[in-house]
Nucleic acid binder design. Structure first.
Lengths: 123, 123
DNA sequence: ATACTTGTTATACTAATACTATCACAAAAG
DNA sequence: CTTTTGTGATAGTATTAGTATAACAAGTAT
């Protein structure tokens, strides 16, 4: 796990952590059952406060991506409720697509954008 | 234009305004050249401060969706730079798709979600 | 000309969020 | 018994969101 923080970014640090971990799982660099660094370790290696890492882990737990355990730390454990995940996905991309429609972007162009992003993760 | 604010929402008020205007354009209820209410009018009708509306309009201006003019107020004026709009779209849906991949959602399921959202706007 | 409306700017204040900093605790591992 | 785990309490700073007033220059209407 190589995680780096851009302190000059306007994106919250705990979201940067959350995003990089999600991308690591999507690209199969982290797998189900793998253990994430402890909050203190990751805080140390990224130069960030312990509670900021803890917040990132809490978000991932809330999203059904990791489980937090006092003995093993944070473990990747995907909650594969597809119906719920699909509902969340639609919510998250809804406004982006509305804006795309305003900009005269066709549905085919959106599909192509989806393909491109998918290919970024699948090898 | 019927705009309402959910004051108990965790979404920022200026983003609620911005989103509803974008949806109104996507659904063709507002069209190119149409004039939006003045910052004071919309602030009055939604029970919100003038500056909050002004911030929403500034965001829409920044996104190339309206033009602000001292004589006519806020006018819908789409900046149809497709390359840029597509780039922004990819940025905005990137993490949502990464998370979907974590949840074992297939690319076809994402395409279907896109279709569903598109149909929400196109009649 | 006068009155009104437009976006815009400035100042000031409150509330909430993000982040940091310490200290501490119970549970599990070595 | 010591270390490491997540977790909680408390406290402080910085930034953002939102409100409240006031004012200004530029355009519109009468």
């Amino acid at each position: 796990m190589l995680i780096t923080i851009d302190f000059s970014s306007d994106e919250a640090i705990y979201m940067q952590l959350r995003n990089q971990i999600i991308i690591a799982i999507a690209t199969d660099r982290i797998r189900e059952g793998d253990t994430l660094p402890s909050v203190r370790q990751l805080a140390e290696s990224t130069g960030v406060n312990m509670h900021t890492v803890n917040k990132a882990y809490s978000v991932l737990k809330q999203e059904g991506i990791v489980k937090l355990d006092r003995r093993h730390g944070a473990v990747v454990a995907l909650d594969l409720n597809k119906a719920q995940a699909l509902g969340e996905l639609k919510c998250e991309i809804q406004m982006a697509i509305a804006k795309a429609i305003c900009k005269n972007i066709s549905i085919d162009e959106v599909h192509m954008a989806v393909e491109e992003i998918f290919n970024r993760y699948k090898e």
